[in-house]
Design a protein around this nucleic acid. Sequence first.
DNA 1: AACTATATCAACCGCATGCTA
DNA 2: TTAGCATGCGGTTGATATAGT
Length: 363
Amino acid sequence: MEVKADDGGCWPDNVVELKKGPWTPEEDQKLLHYIQQHGHGSWRTLPPKAGLQRCGKSCRLRWKNYLRPDIKRGKFSIQEEQTIIQLHALLGNRWSTIAAHLPKRTDNEIKNYWNSHLKKRLSNMGIDPTTHKPKNHAFFCGGRSNDFANLCHMAQWETARLEAEARLVRESKLMSNPSTHLLNKPTTAAPPPPRPPCLDVLKVWAWTNNPGKHMSTATTPSGLLTYNGGLQLNLSDNLGPIPTVELFDQNSSSITNINRVQLSGSWTVNGPPSTGYNYDQDDDEEEEVKGIIDDYSSSMDQIHDMMIMTSNPVDYADPLWIPSSFMQGFTDLPPRINVSETSGPSDNYVFQVVDANAFNLTH
DNA sequence: AACTATATCAACCGCATGCTA
DNA sequence: TTAGCATGCGGTTGATATAGT
């Protein structure tokens, strides 16, 4: 087949027999060997030098997306998925910019993953993947059915979470590049958004496989988080005395087998984040959990910032059921979660404690 | 086992952008 | 200032794999 040279890297002056389609291992080897020996130099002139009947553009793409030694292939982690979703909410389809935040992932891979996985997943959750806002908001929130209402809750939460985290990304960028900040500074500063309560349930699963990011005391105001085919989260609008949360294994009624404990989403009422441990457990168990928690660094301020930066108020007065189907389709299923309430000292923050090993979601 | 539908992802294509003479 | 070249980017395609019937 005669292929006319295109405008972006194929030989301009000759009509050359150029190979297209999948690369063979031999071609890969030639390209790899040439670049290792000489660097890629000008992509346009590379193919004949490397003994390849490909256009330079094709070689560049093959190198960039496949042969480069610093490429990570395989499944995306939950952390990576989160980053993609956050950055997409912030940046849209700017894949190369998003890829810059995901070391060793290519823009093409991220784009494909978005189109084949994440877009559908958000869509199934009732979130418009383009705007990252809930779809059919009025319909879902009209109270016709619990399922729809729950979906609406989740969409609200996801949106709130994305907004908060996108803001964090944006602000951390500005902090790291103050000159850009100054250049882009508007002449009239907009007033900061109000800082209503925020609930960030998605963190429960999102951080499950990334231990150590945030740790602290587990407390909740009249909160109950259990697993029963899905997650049930009952939250009272009474934010009075906040009971301590205790961890227990549903099967053994103990906190044994806990080797990963993580802190997750929350809302802020007022005041600074609390620190310290509050356990209504016997001493041994308390020591065990303390030990676990001490293994990870407490990063309360980060959580606090994330919470207060959201601008979406969330109605946390109603019980929320997260159906187990919601959990399906994630690269890594979260562990089961079991948090119960007891009485205890008050606190201003709510945390969910995740036990990654004591439960098995798919039992 | 055979066929069809759907999902996945490597690769292509055309346009945009930046650089240089 | 402009034209030509080199490279980058994002949308799209199509081959292959996998799931479903």
